[in-house]
């Protein structure tokens, strides 16, 4: 029981960045832009968030308020992710570029920005944030049973992400603008014919996407990566992309995918400390492989009609049929 709660707590922490970045992917692709740059946006957002924390600490501001700093750093991460994604939307919407190429370029550019500026300003390729800024927000080890999964050893980012995820998902499906945005990914010509500004919607979708990726990037380095911002984010951006496809471009599917993947991943992480699993004697590599294999198996077993937006990746040309 104690072990299960421990695993579930870790699952939530691991799944949270994946969840929000995958939703970011949904926003871009539903508006018709393939956002391959999720990884780059995560790296950039995380790095900017870490610089923000570093500057605050250096200036002696809010030293006694680590949680306030955390929230602001998340916002900085989101803002810089959004700014960075403008490079993608500008080339994809305005210049009608090949979105795969632009995304690849942004994925290459973000690590070099981190490395170059890290070396110039911090004399190393990464920033380590002090532990006080990355500690748990809530510790309630007395809570009964399963309440502890969410409310014990929890980070503020968990609640921020859950709130943002829920609000944006509802907004995407229930609001007028959200519907317009989705229409631009399915049939931009039809959307245009009823007076929707396709370019504007695609800019909006990609910018939200970048913001969510930046937010998820900072949430990842502050929680899973123990406060180290560097030029790599361990393939989380691509993983989020995979979870998005796994979830069939749909928020509920993403929740299922991220939680399932996170759970399997965390079993591997604790396999050596749980007696039951340690007795089997399988190497850690086996547990590392399990989540990826399960995703493939689930994809085959529960395959359905692809929810892939039909016009994604195709630049919109007015007057083209």
């Amino acid at each position: 029981m104690e072990n299960l709660i421990l695993i579930l707590q870790k699952t939530i922490i691991y799944a949270i960045p994946l969840l929000i970045v995958a939703l970011g992917g949904v926003f871009a692709e539903r508006s018709g832009v393939i956002n391959l740059a999720l990884e780059g946006e995560m790296i950039f957002g995380a790095f900017m968030g870490a610089i923000f924390v570093y500057l605050l600490q250096k200036g002696g501001v809010w030293l006694d308020k680590p949680q306030l700093t955390f929230i602001c750093a998340l916002a900085v991460g989101a803002g810089s992710g959004a700014l960075y994604s403008l490079l993608l939307s500008f080339s994809a919407v305005k210049l009608k570029s090949d979105q795969t190429i632009s995304g690849t370029a942004l994925n290459m550019l973000a690590p070099t920005i981190v490395n170059t500026f890290g070396l110039v300003f911090f004399l190393q390729e990464k920033i380590n944030m002090p532990y006080t800024f990355t500690g748990y927000a809530i510790i309630n080890s007395n809570l009964p049973g399963f309440l502890r999964i969410l409310f014990d050893k929890a980070y503020l980012s968990t609640f921020v992400v859950i709130l943002v995820f829920a609000l944006l998902s509802i907004w995407l499906y229930k609001s007028k603008v959200g519907t317009h945005l989705r229409a631009c990914g399915e049939h931009p010509q039809a959307a245009d014919s009823v007076g929707i500004n396709v370019a504007k919607m695609r800019y909006l979708g990609t910018t939200i996407s970048g913001a969510l990726a930046g937010l998820g990037g900072y949430a990842y380095i502050a929680t899973v990566a123990n406060g180290t911002a560097e030029a790599t984010i361990g393939g989380m951006g691509f993983l989020a992309l995979a979870i998005m496809i796994f979830g069939n471009w749909n928020p509920i599917g993403i929740v299922i995918g991220a939680l399932m993947f996170g759970f399997l991943k965390c079993i591997g992480a604790v396999s050596s400390s749980v007696p039951f699993l340690a007795n089997i004697g399988l190497p850690p590599y086996f547990y590392n492989i399990v989540p990826y294999v399960v995703v493939l198996v689930v994809l085959v077993l529960f395959r359905k009609k692809s929810g892939c937006p039909k016009a994604e990746g195709i630049p919109y040309e007015k007057g083209q049929r």
Binding site: L87, S91, L95, K96, S97, D98, Q99, I101, S102, T104, A105, L106, M108, L109, T112
Partner: peptide, 12 residues
């Protein structure tokens, strides 16, 4: 990476 970025709209 900048070269690749520009290559994205070389068709333009």
């Amino acid at each position: 990476s900048v070269i690749i970025y520009f290559a994205g709209f070389s068709r333009l």
